[in-house]
Design a protein around this nucleic acid. Structure first.
Length: 604
RNA sequence: GCCCAUAUGGCUCAGGGGUAGAGCACUUCCUUGGUAAGGAAGAGGUCGUGAGUUCAAGUCUCACUAUGGGCUCCA
């Protein structure tokens, strides 16, 4: 047996550790390395080693669960003391000391009844046991430390040398916010020191791309404590960027047959009662009183669009009717979930509602999916799709929900588009397809969404005149492509690390005149650039040329144009091209053509 | 909302009971420079807010506000 053998994969693809396999086991060997299977075993065992260390340091510790997750592992537990970041080092030290004791990790089995008796005084273990159906429970033992665990584990502690405890957090028992809160410590482990180092370095690098950091550096947006949490302010450069994105998307909508509309910011509460928002979404809504009448600030744009639809009689010939709006919405998010621009309390959705017949659902959904795809491709985003089904708080009959949910799945299936299911994650009025993109740290965020809704049209008596002159109810498809400008721009910022493509960049060109004699030429050039919709700044401060070039480069603009005597004489510019990472000279005309070409890349 | 942590000039941070410090940015002056920091001088902070302990509080305690990391993924 190789001394690097830590487990097997059986013919069903399950990991079997050496303790369970015994002397003779027929299966694919798992060596101690950084493969997914190996790391799963190593990280799980490291979680247990951490638990052992915590037991040594805090004699009253009780443990819940300690699974392996995408980014490493964690263990949930309870101690009387407060555990802070400082304590992680102490725990790490104890873990290292335990490894030196060279314990083997052994496994034995007891019955569930035995387990219940043995851990009678441990409410967390009772909670764990209550979720296990098996009559036989396995226990793993290393030194004096024993824990209920189904494995798999490495054979000995010597395989656990390369780990790092990364953060301490609170976590509700069983993920239920009404249950008590346990302490959770996250960590990560690898098969060698270099991989661990590389992983920590990668996290450092990812932090540099954080949109909050770059947003502050580039002066894109800000928050203000005095004004309130989760309420973003857009500074001039952020507003320039946002305006470019809005313009690109506006054209994309018009090309696809959408009509712009706009609803009011607040509506009488009666409307929210009719829609079901008051009952199903009320805890997220801001309410206010005007002349003794209660009004609700809109958390969604659908009602405005419904009222506009109903303003005049509609015929089947008008369908599908596509209304869109950059709708500002307010939602009361819990204070603890606010997160830069990614989760705020006021944001603008690129929202649209498509009124159509049931037969038109599938083709319309596909069109929206294609719209989403063309936008994602423009920015080079990888995305995943999830079909979210009926939530606990919902309006409408199950039969209607099934119909709508099947419609969404069918549209994706017929076009061989992959998706996963998010059970119970739908909107209260209908199921949805969510489009998710990951941020710099690999966290997933919902951006685009496509929702099929039979319920609101019924509640608001929305009608059209059908071919046979009867009145029929249209279906509504709620959809957003970016999701919100706030969240999408946050992800764009991290994706590009602030180096936006020309068609989005807040400042597209910085002109650096070599001396005062060239300021006039710089201004002429700037004026020409404004004519072709290029945002341009001149760096003519009383600083050295080197410094101004450095400052210009630090702005992450696509082009820095240096101009001196030579450029003035020949009507040229000396360019620093960020994308190509090189310097070259162009005539003014050639430069304009290049800029126009790159502006056109932003067409969808 | 809950758990843990953090809050010092515009930004990044130092200072840990005895009346505020650095670098960058900013202002003025000198320098007019061909591709990532030229030089000098100056201005700017009731140390997040409010209470408390103390002869004395950025510094200790408490509350609040804001920010950060978490709170689906089963021994």
């Amino acid at each position: 047996m190789s001394e690097n053998l830590i487990g097997y994969i059986d013919n069903q693809g399950n990991i079997v550790d050496t303790q369970s396999a015994g002397e003779t086991f027929d299966g694919q060997v798992i060596e101690y390395n950084n493969s997914a299977e190996s790391l799963e075993i190593v990280r799980h065992s490291t979680a247990h080693l951490m638990a052992q260390a915590i037991t040594e340091l805090y004699s009253n510790a009780k443990f819940f669960v300690g699974p392996v997750v995408d980014e490493g592992f964690y263990y949930d537990f309870k101690v009387d003391e407060k555990i802070g970041e400082e304590d992680l080092k102490k725990i790490e030290k104890t873990m290292k000391a335990l490894i030196k004791k060279k314990h083997k990790i052994e496994k034995y089995e007891i019955t569930k009844t035995e387990a219940l008796t043995r851990f009678a005084n441990d409410e967390l273990k009772q909670a764990v046991l209550s979720k296990i159906d098996d009559e036989t429970i396995s226990v793993y033992k290393q030194g004096d430390f024993e824990d209920l665990c189904r494995g798999p584990h490495v054979p000995a502690l010597r395989f656990l040398n390369n780990f790092k405890l990364t953060r301490v957090a609170g976590a509700y028992l069983g993920g239920d916010e009404n249950a008590e809160m346990l302490t959770r410590i996250y960590g990560v482990a690898f098969a060698d020191k270099e991989s661990l180092k590389a992983h920590m370095l990668m996290l450092e690098e990812a932090k540099k791309r954080d949109h909050r950091k770059i947003g502050a550096e580039m002066e894109l947006f800000m928050f203000d404590e005095e004004s309130g949490a989760g309420l973003p302010f857009w500074m001039p450069k952020g507003a320039r960027l946002r305006h470019k994105l809005e313009t690109i998307l506006h054209k994309a909508h018009r090309k696809r047959g959408y009509e712009p509309v706009r609803g009011p910011e607040i509506l009488k509460s009666e409307m929210w009662h009719t829609s079901g928002h008051y009952a199903c979404y009320g805890e997220n809504m801001y309410l206010t009183n005007i002349d003794e009448q209660e009004y609700g600030i809109k958390p969604m744009n659908c009602i405005g669009h419904i009222q506009i639809f109903k303003q005049s009689g509609k015929s089947y010939r008008d369908l599908p009717l596509r209304y869109y709006e950059y709708g500002v919405v307010h939602r009361h998010e819990k204070s603890g979930v606010l997160h830069g621009l990614l989760r705020v309390r006021e944001f603008t959705q690129d929202d649209a509602h498509i009124f159509c017949t049931p037969e038109q659902i599938a083709p319309e959904v596909i069109k929206v999916v294609e719209f989403v795809d063309s936008v994602m491709q423009l920015f080079g985003f990888e995305y995943t799709m999830e079909v979210a089904t009926k939530p606990e708080k919902a309006i409408g009959e199950d039969a209607v929900w099934d119909l709508a949910t099947d419609g969404l799945k069918k549209a994706l299936d017929e076009n061989s588009l992959p998706y996963t299911i998010d059970e119970g994650g739908g909107a209260f009025y209908g199921p949805k397809i969510d489009v998710k993109i990951t941020d710099a740290l690999g966290r997933k965020w919902q951006c685009g969404t496509i929702q099929v809704d039979f319920n609101l049209p019924e509640r608001f008596n929305v009608e059209y005149v059908a071919e046979d002159n009867t009145r029929k109810q249209p279906v509504m498809i709620h959809r957003a492509i970016l999701g919100s400008f706030e969240r999408f721009i946050a992800i764009l910022t991290e994706h590009y690390a602030g180096e936006f493509p020309l068609f989005l960049a807040p400042t597209q060109v910085i002109i650096v005149p070599i001396s005062e004699a060239h300021n006039e030429y710089a201004k002429e050039l700037q004026s020409k650039l404004i004519d072709i919709d290029i945002d341009c700044e001149i760096f003519d401060k009383n600083d050295s040329l080197n410094k101004r070039v450095r400052n210009a480069e630090k702005q992450r603009v696509p082009f820095v144009a240096i101009i001196g005597d030579e450029e003035m004489q020949n009507s040229t510019v000396a360019l620093r091209d960020r994308r190509q990472k090189e310097q070259y000279n162009l005539t003014q005309e050639e430069f304009m053509v290049k800029l126009t070409q790159q502006l056109n890349e932003g067409k969808i």
